[in-house]
Design a protein around this nucleic acid. Structure first.
Lengths: 107, 107
DNA sequence: AGGATAGTAAACCATATGGTTGATAATCGA
DNA sequence: TCGATTATCAACCATATGGTTTACTATCCT
């Protein structure tokens, strides 16, 4: 199912630690321990989060020496974004309705 | 935290039943039992999913007679969409890189 | 009034999740 | 070679999640 990928993607995005890690990776490739550093959490714990991101396909890892460099893989993020874009019609019509309601108020 | 809202939103979106319910609500307001109908699941189980969507702020409920009519509240979906839009630069540069790689292949 | 319908609430169960610690492996640097 | 660094793995724990069933309330219909 295509759905399973969205499940994993949204599940991965549902945790602030993991969203923070993605934000950190926006600056460029980072090793697991660098990703872990900002969090009051054991390295093993943080590495689990990295694993969730990797299994969801949101990041790639490559081993360089003893470090495991991670970088963002944009395509899954794009899938999620496109799913959400489906709903754009809703909020735009919502905003349109709000706008005309406001206009009506002023007349 | 603003983050907590994103947590709840993405958690709610991480389940295919709940995404399906949102899709059903795209056609218009629906009662809980109507939302539940497509799923091989007890009404109580489905109602829990509706509760998750409501607590995440993705839907609103209003009681009409003995029915509980639900409709989409677009703003939270929009929040999630905007969070994801942050990453647009990533996949566009990715696609650009892919494109030039393909071009290079052909020369 | 009394039965069917719509929904919630509570108790329960199995499994998933987020975290810990401790052990181990691989690599770097002196 | 030896110690420190980087990371994974396994076992474990508490809590959350997705589902069930049973019981109950509220509303509608005849």
């Amino acid at each position: 199912m295509v759905d399973n990928r969205l499940d994993a993607t949204f599940t991965a995005l549902a945790d602030p630690t993991r969203r923070g890690m993605l934000a950190a990776l926006a600056e460029g490739e980072k090793a697991v321990s660098e990703l872990a550093a900002p969090y009051r959490m054991s390295l093993a714990g943080a590495a689990k989060h990295v694993g969730v991101l990797a299994r969801a396909g949101l990041i790639e890892r490559r081993k360089v020496g003893r470090r495991q460099l991670c970088r963002i893989r944009a395509d899954r993020l794009k899938d999620a974004s496109e799913w959400l874009a489906q709903w754009e019609r809703f909020w735009t019509t919502r905003l349109d309705a709000l706008e005309s309601a406001l206009k009506e108020d002023r007349t």
